[in-house]
Amino acid sequence: MPATAPGAVLLSGIVGSTAYGLAHAGSDIDRLGLFAAPTEGFHGLHHPAESQVTTAPDRTLHEAAKWCRLALSCNPTATELVWLPEDLYEVRTPLGDELMAIRRSFLSARAVRNAYLGYATQQFRKLLTRDTTEATTRARAAKHARHLVRLLEQAVHLHETGHNLVRLPDPGRVRELGERIADEPAVAERLLAAANERLDRPGALPDRPDERPAEAWLHRVRAAHYTPAATPAP
């Protein structure tokens, strides 16, 4: 566990473009993880910090309860932590493995639609507001377009199979499509419409997540990280 961690790191890995297969020379290495703050820290007026973000290295750690809340809303970035390819995990613990075992219970059709399409729409809006005369902005637009395509493909795959496809099967195609969309944003409109249509069909996900496994897991985390105060000597 890194010395700067705010608690016991339960699960951590490399996420972002590296995980998707979209990284290139010079791409940042992004890390995401979750930790368990000492349980006694929740007993007073001020609770432990819910997140820790560092830039050297680029790493975000969420406290276990916050991560669960994000995952229950199907936040795309948080969710991918428990669906990474095996080779991208850097910290795994028994409690982290338990969380991975209940990962499908966090998913729901409504939240996947809201979160993934919401993020994809944000990327589309950024495409429409860029200054097309700047080369650096053109490169940024292609990046937004790649992530738009990636989010839509992940959303549809989640909806139809109940499995989160983090590592894209054809990243070259996604890169090429991103370049095309950067020059012709209307292509993205068609992709958004097609994804909406597929998400309207019956899928593999329930309408609402099952919170019970997450609640039980958090109770195990709190029990494992509780150190009773020492009894004063008489």
Score class of each variant (00 low, 15 high):
residue 32 L to G: 00
residue 229 A to R: 11
residue 197 E to H: 10
residue 124 F to A: 05
residue 156 V to Y: 03
residue 127 L to W: 05
residue 216 A to G: 07
residue 84 L to H: 15
residue 198 R to D: 00
residue 31 R to S: 02
residue 88 L to Q: 09
residue 3 A to H: 14
residue 124 F to I: 00
residue 137 T to P: 00
residue 26 G to R: 15
residue 65 A to H: 03
residue 35 F to P: 00
residue 100 M to H: 07
residue 171 P to N: 09
residue 137 T to N: 14
residue 71 A to R: 00
residue 202 P to T: 06
residue 46 H to M: 07
residue 113 R to C: 04
residue 219 H to M: 11
residue 158 L to K: 01
residue 219 H to P: 00
residue 112 V to H: 06
residue 65 A to V: 08
residue 37 A to H: 02
residue 205 L to V: 15
residue 152 L to R: 06
residue 119 Y to S: 01
residue 11 L to V: 11
residue 49 A to W: 01
residue 117 L to S: 10
residue 183 D to C: 09
residue 204 A to E: 07
residue 93 T to P: 15
residue 44 G to L: 08
residue 55 T to C: 06
residue 33 G to A: 07
residue 130 R to G: 02
residue 135 A to L: 03
residue 146 R to S: 02
residue 99 L to H: 14
residue 216 A to L: 07
residue 94 P to Q: 15
residue 119 Y to V: 02
residue 139 A to P: 00
residue 36 A to K: 01
residue 76 P to Y: 06
residue 90 E to T: 15
residue 222 R to H: 13
residue 98 E to D: 15
residue 159 H to T: 11
residue 43 H to G: 08
residue 179 E to K: 14
residue 138 R to A: 12
residue 119 Y to R: 02
residue 78 A to L: 07
residue 117 L to T: 07
residue 174 V to A: 04
residue 202 P to N: 06
residue 213 P to Y: 04
residue 140 R to Y: 12
residue 215 E to F: 09
residue 152 L to K: 07
residue 220 R to E: 11
residue 9 V to W: 02
residue 129 T to W: 04
residue 153 E to F: 00
residue 156 V to G: 07
residue 99 L to N: 05
residue 137 T to F: 10
residue 42 F to R: 04
residue 180 R to P: 02
residue 143 K to C: 03
residue 74 C to H: 10
residue 107 L to P: 05
residue 167 R to Y: 10
residue 147 H to C: 10
residue 165 L to V: 06
residue 35 F to W: 01
residue 66 K to G: 09
residue 18 T to C: 14
residue 121 T to K: 08
residue 88 L to F: 10
residue 121 T to A: 08
residue 36 A to V: 04
residue 64 A to F: 08
residue 26 G to V: 14
residue 24 H to Y: 15
residue 222 R to K: 04
residue 229 A to Q: 11
residue 114 N to T: 14
residue 72 L to I: 05
residue 221 V to L: 15
residue 54 T to E: 08
residue 109 A to L: 04
residue 113 R to Q: 14
residue 91 V to S: 01
residue 141 A to K: 04
residue 4 T to I: 11
